[in-house]
Computed example of a mutant assay.
Amino acid sequence: MSRTPAVELAPGVFRIPTTPGDYVNVFAFRDDDGQVTLVDCGYFTAPGRILAALRFIGSDPSDVTRILLTHAHGDHAGGLARLRRITGARIAVHGLEAGNVRSGRPPAVERLTLFARLVKLLPGDTWTPSEVDEELTDGQVVDVAGGLRVVHTPGHTPGHVALLHQPSGVLLTGDSLFNWRGRMSLPSLTYCADARLTERSAYALGELEYDVVGFTHGPEIRERAREAVRGFLRERGAGRRG
């Protein structure tokens, strides 16, 4: 569990825990000129922690010039409207989910179970609508801290993306993979738009090259990160065949 407002993953790359137990994380990238890009915004309660983390790393809200969303769910977009008002940052999300960000409503799930229906009644499933300034595409390299590559990983949501920071070798999985309580897993199907695509996208992450893997749910893996991800996927595949 993190005890500081921000955890440095690599020079200029920070994880910001926004809930106890590292359950929901936001990330910050700081350029050499001081500009900051945030990845995700947490729940609607998260902006206070995010602003505190910015102060902790020596940045100001006015330094935030861009906010990228991995996908349009309330635990990632909940704080977006408030942070946009405070920072004036431009908002970017994959084109398939720009409409969701603008409406403040998440994409449909594949299996609308009773539990899923109950979840949708809780505060935080929706968010204050926000304008989108840029629609991201697969393979795009965003001009962030030397290059942040967009990896379209559909399944959890149609426009879900992972992000690979090429200079530092840090991969942000978004919700393609969780590392909750020290155990890697796929996201709950309760929240997934397409279960089969979710699994395929997780396996695609095992083929990328990276040194550190950061999770939006759970702490990062620093040592042999790619091997850890691939090991989890191998075990999952073996379990399915067994």
Results as ranks from 00 to 15, higher is better:
35 Q>F: 12
211 D>L: 13
136 L>T: 07
76 H>D: 07
194 D>P: 00
171 L>F: 08
99 G>L: 11
132 V>S: 09
21 G>Y: 05
137 T>Q: 10
203 Y>P: 05
4 T>Q: 10
233 L>T: 01
175 D>E: 13
224 R>S: 15
166 Q>V: 15
136 L>Q: 03
11 P>W: 06
16 I>M: 10
13 V>H: 09
97 E>T: 05
236 R>C: 00
75 D>Y: 09
178 F>G: 02
68 L>Y: 08
50 I>L: 03
78 G>M: 06
240 R>M: 11
69 L>H: 03
17 P>G: 11
136 L>R: 03
14 F>K: 07
91 I>A: 04
24 V>T: 13
82 R>G: 00
166 Q>M: 15
28 A>N: 02
121 L>F: 03
99 G>T: 13
85 R>T: 10
148 L>T: 01
195 A>D: 10
231 G>S: 12
150 V>A: 00
79 G>W: 03
105 R>S: 12
60 D>N: 14
49 R>T: 04
112 L>M: 09
136 L>K: 02
241 R>I: 13
219 P>M: 11
137 T>R: 13
92 A>Q: 08
67 I>Q: 02
146 G>R: 03
118 L>K: 09
201 S>P: 04
222 R>E: 12
91 I>K: 00
43 Y>L: 07
10 A>Y: 12
12 G>Q: 12
172 L>T: 08
218 G>P: 06
234 R>G: 02
113 T>D: 08
118 L>S: 11
170 V>A: 09
216 T>L: 14
90 R>D: 10
10 A>R: 09
98 A>H: 08
54 L>H: 04
55 R>E: 14
188 S>W: 12
103 S>G: 00
110 E>Q: 14
72 A>P: 06
231 G>K: 00
95 G>S: 07
22 D>Y: 08
125 D>P: 00
90 R>L: 11
192 C>P: 09
94 H>D: 02
174 G>F: 06
3 R>S: 10
204 A>S: 14
95 G>R: 10
111 R>D: 09
36 V>D: 09
7 V>P: 00
117 R>T: 10
107 P>N: 01
37 T>P: 05
179 N>H: 15
204 A>V: 03
159 G>N: 03
54 L>R: 05
79 G>Y: 03
192 C>T: 13
110 E>C: 00
202 A>M: 04
21 G>D: 07
32 D>K: 11
227 E>H: 07
12 G>T: 11
111 R>C: 00
89 A>H: 06
214 G>I: 10
211 D>S: 15
28 A>P: 01
15 R>H: 08
149 R>E: 15
199 E>Y: 10
27 F>G: 00
174 G>I: 07
43 Y>W: 14
236 R>A: 03
115 F>M: 11
194 D>V: 04
60 D>S: 15
137 T>G: 06
144 V>P: 05
46 A>I: 06
158 P>T: 07
180 W>Q: 13
17 P>S: 11
5 P>S: 05
141 V>R: 11
210 Y>W: 10
98 A>Q: 09
77 A>F: 03
180 W>H: 13
23 Y>R: 15
2 S>H: 11
137 T>M: 05
124 G>S: 02
71 H>A: 07
153 T>D: 01
36 V>R: 08
179 N>F: 11
181 R>H: 14
114 L>R: 13
113 T>Q: 08
11 P>V: 02
